[in-house]
């Protein structure tokens, strides 16, 4: 079972990888976007960690809802409402349960991904975060490592795609040949699930 501490570790591990990869995310975003993805997410997740520390939510649903809300407030770019909606919608599905199963987490993340689809109007193959998130959620039934591999492949597979949503879509064919920054950061978020699970087994 996954408790609030697991979800806290997940968000903390995501924040750490965003910190580590911020320059790379911004470099990817400077090729096809407005060169702020790394710094925007860094600011957002730093604020999320501070809020989680201060408010100490005690259920999985509350951790994700609070994190999502904070991302919407502090990121300042499109990734704020998109990641915010992903986490908040997932948090809502988990409700007030003190512990959830991996299957419930998978179901909640699927609802979150549906929320992202509805908000941004993107479809698979549009070169967005969905291209990492959808295969990851599909693979979650086989475990966190399978989900991580699926998200990482999904992110790499955005390289030959032409962007059809967001700032990158203005570039048309010139967006081809660059890995999507949003799909790349989505893979970090999914990879952090496995990190959070390892952290729990050590305790």
């Amino acid at each position: 079972m996954l408790d609030a501490d697991f979800f806290r570790r997940w968000i903390t591990a995501t924040a750490a990888s965003v910190d580590r990869e911020a320059q790379r995310l911004t470099a990817l975003d400077s090729a096809i976007g407005d060169a702020d993805h790394g710094s925007n997410l860094q600011r957002g997740f730093a604020a999320v960690l501070a809020t989680l520390e201060k408010e100490a939510p005690d259920t999985p649903g509350a951790v994700l809802s609070l994190a999502g809300r904070q991302l919407i407030s502090t990121v300042g770019g499109a990734s704020g409402p998109l990641y915010g909606t992903l986490l908040r919608r997932a948090g809502k599905v988990l409700g007030d349960a003190p512990e959830v199963t991996e299957a419930q987490l998978a179901e909640a993340l699927r609802a979150g991904v549906d929320g992202v689809k509805a908000l941004g109007g993107a479809a698979p193959g549009d070169k967005t975060m969905l291209d990492a998130l959808i295969p990851a959620v599909d693979a979650l039934g086989e475990g966190f490592d399978a989900a991580r591999r699926a998200a990482e492949s999904g992110a790499v597979e955005t390289t030959p795609m032409q962007a059809r949503k967001g700032r990158a879509s203005y570039l048309g064919e010139r967006s081809i040949g660059h890995q999507d920054p949003g799909a790349t950061s989505s893979a970090l978020l999914i990879a952090a699930l496995a990190t959070a699970a390892e952290g729990g087994s050590d305790e």
Binding site: I72, A78, G80, P81, L119, G120
Partner: peptide
């Protein structure tokens, strides 16, 4: 455009 639209939509959904 972009994040302006998405942020308002996300706030409305809240």
């Amino acid at each position: 455009l972009g994040s302006a639209v998405l942020t308002v939509k996300a706030l409305l959904a809240e």
